[in-house]
Design a protein around this nucleic acid. Structure first.
Lengths: 179, 179
DNA sequence: GAAGCTATGTAGCAAGTGCTACAAAAATGG
DNA sequence: CCATTTTTGTAGCACTTGCTACATAGCTTC
């Protein structure tokens, strides 16, 4: 009647769902286990240690993030870098991305502290994002690679302002982008 | 021979020093107490609860940050927004700011999770920063307020890239700023 | 100096942490 | 069908968490 056999592959989606909702930093084995329909005992069994779990989880979430970005793929290209950045901000503000962004800032904090697993996950997610940004620049952009990086800085900055409750600052900043 | 009387005011600097070095998220009472030369018992006595401690600590750190920014006040103004942003990135990369930035991303993560104390601290620190940015724009900037916001987004974005180990992305992005 | 408030030390509690020892069930291979 | 390996359950350990009860010391005020 239930899941007979569990494995990392079947567990990770449920674990990721729990972490997206409740955060990664404060996640401990027993709540994670309950959310995934198993026991702390089995989490350690499958992932060897909590570090192993977290590493696998970060990898999985990075994958989910790439997929979510691809699914949000829209429409015709923007006319200017500014408009492009503004659209990307709007996408980042969509409710379905909110859990990702909460988790994203946790990952950034972990990476800033020097943790290798967090860095790897952050780099993977940032790679997706840069590529995505590059693909959404105006087609006549003189230097798409540099432009994507500039747009990335601005959009990430604006999303950070959002996280602080200063969304207007982000909007005003993006509005001042050249274009 | 030692500190005879302790109070929140005498404790906060030592607590802040410990937190800047070891992080705030994982800081528990007993290590904090040892770092401040007192006991967990007394921390609760002075701050009523751990939440009270954290709130006071965040307020204190926000004040320290404003002071640190004022001390880093430099030199002649930049000629362009781009140059301004690049200088600010260089300042943010100075070793003395590294502990602040590690803590900063922790605070952003806390604010993103919705914690009011973190939000308040983050807003205070961001206000200092925006004012500081505005004061360092080229004197002939057409719209200093909007310019400061744009520069803030870009510099914060670049500092985030630094935290992820992608400093070059930040540099490339800033180099693409208009000016 | 007695009374009373403030500051501090000692001990400990209930809950939660990651993880392990032991053992049984369940699948697998001969 | 038996032997072996893989997967799971039950208890529990040693430790840390925030916080409290209780007692004591020290300063202040009359």
């Amino acid at each position: 009647m239930e899941n007979l056999r569990q494995s990392p592959d079947t567990l990770l989606p449920k674990l990721a769902a729990h972490v997206l909702e409740h955060g990664l930093a404060g996640a401990s084995l027993r709540p994670l286990a309950k959310a995934a329909g198993t026991s702390d005992r089995m989490l350690i069994y499958h992932f060897k240690s909590k570090d192993g779990l977290v590493t696998a989880l970060l990898e999985h979430v990075a994958g989910m993030y790439s997929q979510a970005l691809e699914m949000a793929w829209p429409t015709e290209p923007a006319a200017t870098r500014r408009e492009c950045a503004q659209r990307l901000l709007a996408i980042g503000r969509a409710p379905m991305f909110a859990p990702f962004l909460r988790l994203w800032w946790e990952i950034v904090a972990g990476a800033a502290k020097g943790d290798a697993a967090y860095r790897a996950s952050a780099a993977a997610m940032m790679d997706s994002q840069l590529a995505w940004f590059e693909a959404h620049l105006p087609p006549d952009d003189p230097d798409p690679k540099a432009g994507a990086r500039l747009v990335a800085l601005a959009v990430e900055g604006a999303l950070m302002m959002d996280a602080l409750g200063l969304g207007e600052v982000g909007e005003a900043g993006l509005a001042a982008l050249e274009g």
